[in-house]
Amino acid sequence: MNIHPIKAFSDNYIWIIEEGTEAVVVDPGEAGRVIDYLEEKQLHLNSILLTHNHDDHIGGVQEISAKYPGIAIYGPKETEHIADHIVHEGNSFNLLDQNFQVLKTGGHTHGHISFLTEGALFCGDALFSAGCGRVFTKDYRAQYSALQKFKRLNDEIQVYAAHEYTQTNLRFAHSVQPDNTVISEALTEVNDLRAKGHPTLPTTIGREKKINLFLQAEKLEDFKALRNARDEF
């Protein structure tokens, strides 16, 4: 299984999961670059996975599905206006010879979900490298619960988040813990990657346990204070 990033807008990643000549697209906020890539690589689009209903994650679905009629579109209930396979916590299904499990990871939106395979997590805006999504719902408990789910995953799981926020997240983490050498070294590494125009994703669950202050928060109150500080950073 090969996973390729398509850059979209200022900092989004649309992930293309490939197996042979088959492909699955995750959170296509725009269509043009996705269609161009599929045509260039001569890939057959199998289905689309949606983590939540924000426009920068679903904006390209109609154009893509018009180009590739009959494809399956999996998403949470909040995407029922555009998805034809509504999935919930605990559901699983097979695509490209891979089993995909559905995790409820609300907080950023009420119905946000993530998709977990044996070796990869597609977490939309629920988890970023060194950070997590804004809690637009104000349901901090739901977002904290999502982070605890991620924390229990195997360290080797590759994390495919939907935004390139790592550099800013690590700058924030460094401002909170300036003497944390692991975070300082990670920031130096990420600064170098971004200076060269390289993505900082995927990360891994194991790496995030070391550099992600939100995952490290031991109490809901600690997480909420940290999230509010990050919002103001």
Rank of each mutant, 00 (worst) to 15 (best):
N2C: 08
H4S: 14
I6S: 01
F9P: 05
G20Q: 04
T21H: 12
V26D: 03
G29V: 03
A31R: 03
R33K: 12
V34F: 04
E39N: 09
H44P: 00
S47Y: 00
N53G: 13
I58L: 06
G59I: 07
G60C: 01
K67D: 08
I71R: 01
I73D: 03
E78I: 10
E78A: 08
E78G: 11
E80D: 14
I82S: 08
I82V: 15
H85D: 13
V87K: 05
G107R: 09
H108A: 12
S129Y: 11
A130S: 15
A130I: 08
V135H: 10
V135W: 00
F136V: 08
F136W: 12
R141Y: 13
R141G: 11
S145F: 06
A146K: 00
L147W: 03
K149T: 08
N154Y: 11
N154A: 15
E156R: 13
Q158M: 10
A161K: 02
H163C: 06
Q167N: 12
V176S: 09
V182I: 14
L187N: 02
L187H: 06
E189Q: 10
E189I: 02
G197K: 04
P202C: 07
T204V: 07
L215K: 05
A229F: 06
R230V: 04
E232I: 12
